[in-house]
């Protein structure tokens, strides 16, 4: 009853601000376009590629190369959906209307998550087909083993990035602070931790590193990652749940 009201209200809120359209379309365009560009370049240089790289060559994963940038737009989307409520002060009006804070937060996150999921799945499929088109003869198809899983998993990955950002924004409340934490983390820190051999073993348990495993079809040579594609997505899901629980506790305990 109350939950249905919250969902309807949140849908009105989310569709009536320009930032929704902007952030989501940037996420789509950047992911697809950058994926196409990198796929085309890879196709061009395939002949000169060392054997070792050819063995690890993963045409599916290459077509998702744009996600490293596209996910930043998803982060902005997730942060704005939640933190705008605080930065504008709307949170007080909303919570005065729905004093059940848990219901309010879960309704808000459910609406934003479903929207992000729809956009992410579409992005993932478009990025895959566009990438394969650029790869030409080196490409793969949805029928190959593991490829469909990777493409659908790519959609889940992007969605979970957005939901994780919503949880963090619910904890931190300020859009600037949330973006200031999430952007450098996903763009720089996670990559550095995952690529330096000393921290690699920890880095691979970070949400984006673990989650992106689901988009791989070919396992790189001498890869000793202790989890599989769904296991990686599961680790990411645990991170997301932790962020949401943290956000819920903050909302429930603190003064609005």
């Amino acid at each position: 009853m109350t939950a249905a009201r919250v969902v309807r209200s949140e849908w009105t809120k989310i569709r009536s601000v320009a930032s929704t359209v902007w952030t989501l379309s940037v996420a789509v365009v950047v992911t697809v376009a950058l994926g196409m560009l990198i796929s085309a370049l890879t196709n061009h240089e395939f002949a000169t590629m060392p054997d070792r790289d050819r063995l690890s060559f993963d045409p599916t994963f290459i077509s998702f190369a744009g996600m490293s940038l596209g996910q930043l737009a998803m982060i902005v989307f997730g942060v704005l959906v939640v933190a705008n409520e605080y930065s504008t002060g709307m949170i007080r009006t909303s919570l005065a209307a729905v004093p059940q804070r848990g219901t309010f937060l879960s309704g808000k996150i459910a609406v934003a998550t479903l929207l992000a999921l729809a956009v992410s799945l579409a992005t993932s499929f478009v990025a895959f087909f566009a990438g394969q088109a650029m790869l030409g003869a080196h490409g793969t198809s949805l029928g190959e083993p593991g490829v469909l899983r990777a493409v659908i998993g790519g959609g889940f990955y992007m969605t979970l990035i957005a939901v994780f950002s919503m949880g963090v924004a619910a904890m931190l409340r300020s859009p600037m602070l949330s973006l200031g934490v999430l952007m450098p983390f996903f763009f720089l820190i996670s990559n550095i931790l995952g690529n330096v051999s000393a921290t690699e073993k920890i880095g691979r348990f970070l949400p984006d590193q673990a989650g992106s495993k689901v988009m791989r079809v070919v396992t790189p040579v001498d890869d000793d990652t202790p989890y599989g594609p769904w296991g990686g997505l599961g680790i990411m899901l645990l991170w997301v749940i932790a962020a949401l629980v943290g956000g819920y506790l903050m909302l429930e305990r603190r003064d609005a």
Binding site: V17, G89, R92
Partner: peptide, 9 residues
């Protein structure tokens, strides 16, 4: 509570 507590967009 606060007349400015609206999303300007």
């Amino acid at each position: 509570l606060d007349a400015k507590a609206v999303h300007g967009g």
